[in-house]
Design a protein around this nucleic acid. Sequence first.
DNA 1: TCCACAATTCAACGACAACTCAATTAAAAC
DNA 2: GTTTTAATTGAGTTGTCGTTGAATTGTGGA
Lengths: 221, 221
Amino acid sequence: MSAPHGAEGSGEVAEDLGGGRKRTGRRPGVTLSRHAILQAARSRFAEHGYAGASVRAIANDAGVDAALIHHFFLSKEGLFAASIHDALHPEAVVEAVLGGKGVRGTGERLVRTFLALWEGETTARQMRSILRSAASHEAAARILREFITQEVLVPIARTTGRTHPDVRASLAASQLVGLAMTRYIVEIGPLATLPQDDVVACVAPTLQRYLTGALPAPFDA
Amino acid sequence: MSAPHGAEGSGEVAEDLGGGRKRTGRRPGVTLSRHAILQAARSRFAEHGYAGASVRAIANDAGVDAALIHHFFLSKEGLFAASIHDALHPEAVVEAVLGGKGVRGTGERLVRTFLALWEGETTARQMRSILRSAASHEAAARILREFITQEVLVPIARTTGRTHPDVRASLAASQLVGLAMTRYIVEIGPLATLPQDDVVACVAPTLQRYLTGALPAPFDA
DNA sequence: TCCACAATTCAACGACAACTCAATTAAAAC
DNA sequence: GTTTTAATTGAGTTGTCGTTGAATTGTGGA
């Protein structure tokens, strides 16, 4: 969970004059507000989803007027897009998973790489934002859908040289998305508390089977 | 998807006097509004999640004044709770899955029963409501969490007589939740379009392994 | 030095949020 | 038939939403 001081702590440029009022006009020195806004947005979107996070609350967290958000990002949509921009580096993920080490450890490397995204401070917030928002915000759902299908799983499945790479890819996606939902969002039972290595050990065989194992009758019969 | 005339169609009791206005006071005959509200609420919550669905929009869909919702359900929270109430009948699910037919087909029966919930008109809306809202609304997340862990998966895992039933249960939950997310919410790739039987054939072995197979080293070594 | 521009806040807009209260009409209980 | 209770809307409260335009203050280039 985030520390009690929250996402503020970067925007302490503006000294306030009595009554919470801040001096208008540009501040001296380098500008930090844009970055502060992005960080606050990631936290809010990660905790409350797209609809539940308000521009004003984000601005407040960032220690900034709400209008500044529109100055930088034009709209709430724009802020959301920017806040999850480059959360997902497909090349990096694909590289980490394939890594030239042959096909046998693919399942394990896939879970491990995926879980790592959920442990890093910044990437975890972005992942939470995407998943939480994807459940009810179409733009987020589209981002998630296209990223998963086009940029990570299809390449992975294709390089394994098996049949029906798209089916294999979506099956693997279902297990990974479900893992994220149950471990990090809904926080179900032992899955939410098990050490990372145990989770990897349990789930990796499933992914390995989806990616390189035999598919049931309707497919390869 | 829902028909264009939407969730109305039941509340046609109130004839309107000119200008969209409706006569005040109680309507003659039996009262259908409560039911109409619940149906409209299920649709709205299913499509937009808790935060994205407004009481006014639901009232509008139901052809009813917004105040009537508060009269019946006291608050939006109350409406939400009522709208997903008895969506999940644990006994029925457990019965359908265990069904006295021994342990070998448990995985398959579990997926099949789960998918059936997502195909029925009413239950699908309730499932969508719960999952969409659970992603960002704590009350929904709690409902989902407790239902999954306490009322379905633990009993199922316990009756299989294997070690670590809670770990097995949460692993199975992760696959099922992920399946619902990818097939019905985010609609990823082939999973969203595959016929039900194919999905069952692909996923059942995973559940069977989680529930009755060998767990990896950290658990049974 | 002057000028274009970027950063920043204030004040407000119109829309809509959840919710309340009183009035009106019908059903149910007596 | 009278009284109580339930259903229903209208009008309104209070608050928040995303967004805008003008005003102010700093930065950087000519």
